Amino acid sequence: MHPCQAGIEVVTSYALRRCARCGDMKKLTDFPVKIGGKRGLRSWCSACDAPIGTEYCYPCRSYKPAEEFAKRYLGQHPKCLACRAKIQRDWKLRKKYGMTLEGYEDFVATQGGVCAICQKDEDLVVDHDHHCCPTSESCGECIRGVLCRQCNSAIGLFGESVGRIAKAVSYLKARSVKR
């Protein structure tokens, strides 16, 4: 039985929703359609919607060109590629070494922003003592420094043995061609 036939007063009104950006209560018709969304609508109103060809990055709190977002996430992902990379880097550092991205950046800055061995300033990675933590994850206490990927790999290939590295140095000194 329909509510009107049962004597129940039905108040017809527009469904309202609060815009996530401006905070105003607006009619549902004021919200753009979002395919695949929970309610089928964006969480912000048309007035707050991004200009054509741009997307809103929540961590940056700004509109950026759509090219700066992963194509598969356009219209549904709130982070630009730069912010996503930074957030993923922070997560990996926390999981693997127990340090934040800010802690890593401070560590690099105290080391002069370069590899502790070759002084290159590119592709820097965290070096930790594998004798303390033999798995790929570190306890955070055995971090030795920041090295470029090549120097870190070289130390790993020598099994982190000071004796083997010293023998390699003496080998190179004895057999190198004078230039």
Rank of each mutant, 00 (worst) to 15 (best):
R61T: 10
C132W: 05
Q111C: 05
R179Q: 10
R175E: 08
S136I: 13
V108K: 15
Y171Q: 13
K64T: 00
E141W: 00
N152H: 10
D106G: 06
G75F: 07
G163K: 15
Y56P: 02
A116W: 02
Y58N: 13
M99C: 09
M99T: 10
A82W: 03
Y104E: 03
A116Y: 03
I117S: 11
A70P: 08
A66N: 10
T54G: 02
K173H: 10
E122R: 14
H130E: 08
M99Y: 01
L93K: 09
Y171H: 15
G140D: 05
A168Y: 05
G98E: 01
C118W: 03
H77Y: 14
T110H: 12
Y63P: 00
D123C: 10
A109C: 04
C118T: 11
A109H: 09
F69N: 08
V177W: 07
E105F: 03
H131N: 08
R94G: 01
L124W: 04
Y73Q: 11
K96E: 07
G53Q: 13
W91S: 13
Q76L: 11
Y97N: 06
V177R: 15
D129I: 09
I117V: 15
D106M: 13
P59N: 04
Y58G: 05
Q150L: 12
E68T: 11
I143W: 01
F107I: 03
G53W: 12
D129S: 04
S62T: 13
I52W: 03
L101A: 07
S170I: 12
G163W: 03
Q88C: 06
P134A: 04
E160V: 07
C60P: 06
A82D: 13
A154P: 00
T100Y: 01
E160H: 08
V177I: 14
I155L: 15
G145L: 07
V108E: 05
L124E: 00
S153Q: 14
V114P: 04
D106P: 01
G75M: 05
C118E: 02
V126W: 02
E105N: 10
L74P: 03
S138I: 05
G156K: 06
R84M: 11
D129E: 10
P134M: 04
K95E: 07
E160R: 08
G103E: 15
N152V: 03
A168E: 07
D127M: 03
I87G: 01
D123M: 11
P51H: 08
Y58S: 14
I165P: 07
D106C: 09
N152W: 02
G53R: 13
G103D: 14
Y73G: 13
R149Q: 05
I117C: 11
P51L: 10
I87P: 03
V162S: 08
V169M: 14
N152K: 06
G98R: 15
E68V: 06
I165W: 03
V108Y: 01
V146L: 07
M99K: 15
S138G: 02
T54F: 09
F69C: 10
V125E: 11
S138F: 00
I117L: 15
Q76E: 06
P59L: 09
Y97H: 15
E137I: 04
V169K: 14
A66G: 06
C133A: 05
